[in-house]
Nucleic acid binder design. Sequence first.
DNA 1: TTACATGCAAACTGTTTGCAAATAT
DNA 2: ATATTTGCAAACAGTTTGCATGTAA
Lengths: 135, 135
Amino acid sequence: MENRKQLVERLRAVGLRPTLQRIALGELLFSKGDRHLCAEDLHAEARAALVPVSLATVYNTLNQFKAAGLLREIAIEGDRSYFDTNTSNHYHFFDDEKHELMDIEIGDLTVTGLPEAPEGKVIDRIDVIVRLRDA
Amino acid sequence: MENRKQLVERLRAVGLRPTLQRIALGELLFSKGDRHLCAEDLHAEARAALVPVSLATVYNTLNQFKAAGLLREIAIEGDRSYFDTNTSNHYHFFDDEKHELMDIEIGDLTVTGLPEAPEGKVIDRIDVIVRLRDA
DNA sequence: TTACATGCAAACTGTTTGCAAATAT
DNA sequence: ATATTTGCAAACAGTTTGCATGTAA
């Protein structure tokens, strides 16, 4: 989906120095299609890939990527924060038992009958989480 | 919306002893229409109402009420957990600047084109959060 | 050579828990 | 009388931060 040179450019474009750690984390995040993961997940992947990155740097990097619009945070209640490498408009299934997130293709699902935003506000985006349980 | 006697009955019905603290918190929660609040909010209200309740008990009570179906937890990313006293099917506006939740009447908003749930799963419920920003 | 990034450990925040004292049945 | 609930303080998890060291420009 993205090679190293493109990634370096993308980092520069958002004002982040393309350091070893940011490149390595960026490759883990953006080279395997759309992903949903938390800081611990990414840290474990990095260590498995023999990339020495501290957990603090993983947190900082995720937050910087999020602020730069490279990632989106997904709101699910619970202890951990999840990030989505797909920043385009789409929705999610959430499996509460397996604690797993899956994409729903945007084409499938439509939200209609949206009320007016309150005075002085506009709608920024709409998050939809379809919660699953065992049949 | 609910007087003390009804509340006591409701607590008994879900297997919770109607203690002083649970009744007091229940009245704060269920006597003022639909509310969205976190543990600290409720604790502050209780102290303001001169009800001596510890924060730990507020947390325990919120979790017990949630497990009993008296409350619903709302997923918004961030540090605190929010609870909704309206457990019926409805959606929310979320004002990220003011960190404030508002109900959207269910009649207004419809979600269509829902894809099949994955094998072995069924849809439990659908959460919709309409995120607002300053115009 | 200057500003920014990293790693570590310590700090911090929201939440949960263990245990003795208090309360509901 | 017995089981449950409470409050406190300590434990806990995830996340952030301060500061010295290392790295990019």
